[in-house]
Simulated assay, not measured.
Amino acid sequence: MLSRVAESLFWMSRYFERAENTARFLDVNFNLLLDLNRIATLESSNCWIAPILVSSEKACFEGQYNEYSAQTVTDYLVFSRNNPNSIRSCISLARENARSVIESISSEMWEQINNLYHFLQSVTPQQVQGDPYSFYKEIKNASHLFQGITDNTFSRTEGWDFIQIGKYLERADNAARLIDVKYHMLNPENERALDPVHGSVEIIQWMAVLKSCSALEAFRKVYLSKIDPDNILRFLVLERTFPRSIAFSICSAQEALWAISGSTRNRYANNVDRLIGKMESELSYTSVEDMHYKGLHEYLKELENGLMRIGEQIHLLYFAYHTPKIEPSDLSDSLPFTGLGGGRAGWSQSQQQQ
């Protein structure tokens, strides 16, 4: 397989997953405000800063907007062309990647991604503000349909493996960021800094964390007792049967990488297989107590940095057209959306500009 084709399939999948994750988080945020009967304070910055923190776009956002509100956050994360991680930008980039390898994907895949692209071009901010539920549902359903079409029309070749790698690396990174931000904001130690969270209100907030990963029903089937923050952490990070947990995503990405390289559990063929194998093994023997002992924020940051290095090594091994330095001097120059401070790598943009 040509490296150009592999890279386009990887980023097509990753950008689609990113758009769906953003849509789900914004949708849950709107519904959370309804559940908490906080419509009158919809413009409160505390309600809308979390989606920006999850996407690591705080500095960029504050450079363009003066306040955190439903209107400004929606405009930035849905419509802004200056934000490469907005839903509109992600779908445009996914479509461009699909177009560049249109001969390698099925006509049904191209039709679905093209339909969503044109739908987004026709939607106005006023429509989203008036009916956010219908809009975000459309984005999520379009992503599910695209993944279902891909499952049923794409041959299980190396191209399929690169699609899976992109999807699951993005999913793991998004889950780590979400847990880091929301767990910190709901931590009792921070009650003085934010609105107090007690009783039923706290339960609603933690349910929103699960809904942001489409995990509420699956969580309830495993943990029948009262919603507990440690159980939520255990489920979203370590549960290997749930397809949106970090552990499941890492295992799935590892299987796809091994299918390409021929690595096994006892022998790795390259550095990227070593890195992801090490991460999978550490997750296998990690407990919630270990995370707290190390510091949850530090643990999740280390996980995000590990995903960043895996993405960099995938590029160097499979996509690069030259031989750059193996480790970037500045981590912010690594994988898009996973770089510290939301940095975007030059190499990730090279093929987008073709």
Rank of each mutant, 00 (worst) to 15 (best):
residue 214 S to W: 05
residue 218 A to K: 06
residue 237 V to M: 15
residue 249 S to F: 07
residue 215 A to R: 07
residue 246 I to G: 04
residue 247 A to T: 02
residue 217 E to V: 08
residue 231 N to M: 08
residue 233 L to Q: 00
residue 235 F to E: 03
residue 245 S to I: 08
residue 226 K to N: 15
residue 219 F to H: 13
residue 242 F to C: 06
residue 230 D to I: 10
residue 230 D to S: 14
residue 221 K to R: 14
residue 221 K to T: 08
residue 230 D to T: 13
residue 227 I to D: 10
residue 222 V to N: 01
residue 225 S to W: 12
residue 227 I to T: 11
residue 239 E to S: 14
residue 229 P to A: 07
residue 238 L to S: 07
residue 222 V to W: 00
residue 237 V to D: 06
residue 223 Y to P: 01
residue 241 T to C: 09
residue 230 D to W: 10
residue 217 E to T: 04
residue 228 D to G: 06
residue 228 D to A: 03
residue 225 S to Y: 13
residue 246 I to V: 15
residue 218 A to Q: 09
residue 236 L to P: 00
residue 225 S to V: 14
residue 248 F to S: 04
residue 225 S to K: 15
residue 219 F to R: 09
residue 231 N to D: 12
residue 249 S to E: 07
residue 225 S to P: 09
residue 221 K to V: 01
residue 238 L to R: 08
residue 230 D to H: 13
residue 218 A to M: 08
residue 216 L to Q: 09
residue 238 L to H: 07
residue 246 I to D: 02
residue 240 R to N: 12
residue 243 P to S: 14
residue 247 A to C: 06
residue 234 R to I: 03
residue 223 Y to V: 03
residue 216 L to P: 00
residue 224 L to T: 14
residue 230 D to G: 05
residue 227 I to L: 15
residue 218 A to F: 15
residue 236 L to K: 02
residue 221 K to N: 13
residue 241 T to Q: 13
residue 234 R to Y: 07
residue 233 L to F: 01
residue 224 L to H: 15
residue 245 S to M: 12
residue 216 L to A: 09
residue 230 D to N: 13
residue 243 P to R: 12
residue 230 D to E: 14
residue 218 A to V: 10
residue 237 V to A: 14
residue 249 S to D: 06
residue 219 F to D: 11
residue 239 E to G: 02
residue 222 V to R: 14
residue 241 T to Y: 10
residue 215 A to I: 00
residue 244 R to S: 11
residue 244 R to K: 11
residue 240 R to F: 00
residue 247 A to K: 11
residue 216 L to C: 01
residue 219 F to Y: 15
residue 222 V to F: 01
residue 234 R to K: 11
residue 239 E to I: 07
residue 238 L to G: 05
residue 238 L to F: 12
residue 231 N to Y: 08
residue 235 F to K: 04
residue 247 A to Y: 10
residue 229 P to G: 03
residue 243 P to Q: 12
residue 239 E to V: 04
residue 231 N to S: 10
residue 220 R to L: 06
residue 245 S to C: 08
residue 235 F to T: 01
